[in-house]
Structures are given as C-alpha cells and as structure tokens.
C-alpha cells in the first residue's frame, strides 16, 4: 500500500470524528441540558418529603428513645415523664406475626397456583381480583374484620382480629409479588426440568421456587413493612390497651384480648394535649419509620441474590 493512500485514508477518518463531536450551543444540546435540569429538579422535589419526614421524625423522636421507652407501659395522661410503649411494640410484632402466619402460606400457595397451574383465563381473573383487593382502602378492611370477628363476638376486640385484618391487607401484596417473581423464571428452565422427567409439581418445588426465592423474600418483607405501619385496620379490631395484655406464659388465650400497637399508639397520643404522650408518639413514629427502612434494606439485600 502506498503512503499517500494511507494518508488520505487517515484524513477522511479525522473528518468523520469531527462530525460526531458535540456542537456547543446547538438547539439539540440546549434541549438536552434543559431536560436534564428539569427532570433533575423534579427528582429533588420528589425526594424532599421523604427527607423532611425522616429528619423531622428523627429530631422529634430521638431524645425520647430511652430504655424506658422499650421497657415501660404507656404513661397515664397526667404523668409528666416516664413510661414507654413496650406493650405496643410487642403488640405490633404479635399482630404482624399473626398476619404473616395467615397470609404467607395462603398467598404463596395461591401465587404458585396462579403462575404454574391455572389456565390463562382463570389467572387473568384472579390477578384482576387481587389488584382490586390491594386497592381497597385499609380502613374498609378494618371494618370488614370488625363485622366478621368483632361484632359477632367470634374473637371480640383482639390480637387475632387485628392480625387477621393485617393478613387481608398483606394477602394481595404477597400474591402479586410472588406471582411476579415466579413469572420471571424463564419458561425454558421449566421445560428443561419437565423434559428431564420431572412432574410439574417437582419442577415447581425443585427449580422454580428456589430460583424465585430471593424475589419472593423481597415481596414478603415489603408486605410485612406495609402491615407494620397500618393503623386503620387495627382501630376497629385490636383496639388498644394501656397494659400488658399479651402474656408469654399463656400466649393463646391472651391473643383474644385487645392489644396495643405502635401505630394506634401514635394515633391516640399524637392528638392529645399531654406533652409526655406526644413525645412518646414521636418516638413510636421513629420506630415505625425504622422498621420500614430496615425491611427495605433487608429486601434490597435479598434482591442482591436474585437469579433472574
């Protein structure tokens, strides 16, 4: 190849790279910058409430977050200091546990049926129904359980009734996230398993579920986080208690009496004129925010191990 030929080759390549260089001040680049700035601003605006809420709750709640808060019972209205929300914390844990105990097995099994065994038509209707259920305002769920278990005296105001209400709330979230997690597992992988002579249920148990487990765990944590912060379904079902109603020595029968919860404590104490109770409400709010943060981090951590 002659050198002059090479040279001309180089020159044309140079010309090409020139044409892809950014042209400052062109209409395109101004538009680009404008869009970046506008969408960036919107992002900041969207994040402001989140940060304000967290900062405000931390400032208001942090100094009341002492040992007493975790060990003592709610103070009477006129007590100037002292008291805590130990029973409410336990109450929230107990009811979320009851809710999870009911909704996780049903929800996960329902989602497995939905994604693996049902026909497309049935699946479509069930998905539609779960979407509606997840859109039902949580206060209605509270009223529903109130009518079903409290008014009829099946359980009366109780941890069971509260937990059941939370279960109804969690159910659609669990069904939907589990369903989605299962759907993500590629059809090819199912076919590989069936093609090796596994039955369909073996395929689900041995391949599909393990592959979807991290994603399912994420969904479950989100459902728990959501339930832990709910107030409305508990007001009509679990009521509240100033005292210890959960007795670890006899857990079963104590589940049938009214029980305190953090969210209802916040609801009750935030609007009263007693400073001590107000402060306690802030501290309880901080705990609720911490639970949500913690579960979100947990679910992020579970997603880290995601396979598909």
């Amino acid at each position: 190849m002659s050198s002059s030929h090479q040279l001309s080759h180089k020159r044309s390549a140079k010309a090409d790279t020139d044409s892809i260089n950014q042209k400052q001040g062109s209409r395109q680049s101004i538009g680009e910058t404008a869009w970046t700035v506008i969408s960036g601003l919107c992002l900041v605006i969207a994040l402001i409430p989140l940060f304000l809420v967290i900062i405000y709750v931390v400032i208001k709640g942090i100094n009341r977050l002492d040992v007493a808060a975790f060990t003592e019972l709610p103070p009477p209205p006129l007590a100037d200091e002292g008291g805590g929300f130990a029973n409410a914390l336990i109450g929230t844990l107990v009811m979320v546990a009851i809710g999870a105990l009911i909704s996780v097995p049903f929800g996960v099994m329902a989602a497995i049926y939905l994604s693996e065994f049902s026909s497309k038509k049935i699946a479509k209707w069930i998905r539609f129904a779960t979407n509606i259920l997840s859109g039902v305002p949580s206060i209605l769920i509270g009223v529903f359980i109130y009518g079903l278990l409290v008014l009829t005296n099946v359980t009366g105001y109780s941890a069971i009734a509260g937990g059941t209400a939370l279960a109804v709330l969690m159910l659609p979230i669990i069904v939907r996230t589990t369903d989605e997690s299962l759907q993500i597992v590629p059809r090819q992988v199912r076919w590989a398993s069936v093609g090796l002579g596994a039955s369909r249920y073996e395929t689900v148990l041995r391949v599909v579920l393990p592959a979807a487990l991290p994603a399912i765990a994420t969904g479950l944590t989100l459902a728990v986080a959501r339930a832990a912060g709910e107030t409305a379904p508990l007001i009509f079902t679990a009521l509240f208690a100033q005292f210890w109603t959960f007795n670890p020595a006899d857990p079963f029968s104590s589940l049938f009496s009214p029980i305190a919860s953090l969210s209802v404590l916040v609801y009750n104490f935030a609007a009263v004129p007693y400073k001590n109770q107000q402060e306690l409400a802030w501290a309880a709010s901080l705990i609720l925010v911490a639970i949500v943060l913690l579960t979100s981090i947990l679910s992020r951590w579970a997603t880290r191990n995601r396979i598909y």
Partner: peptide
C-alpha cells in the same frame, strides 16, 4: 431427553 436452543442450566 431434550436439549434446547438457549442453554438453560438450572440455577
């Protein structure tokens, strides 16, 4: 037995 177009090992 069957082998598919896309390699599809189990995870």
């Amino acid at each position: 037995g069957m082998v598919f177009q896309q390699p599809n090992p189990f995870p």
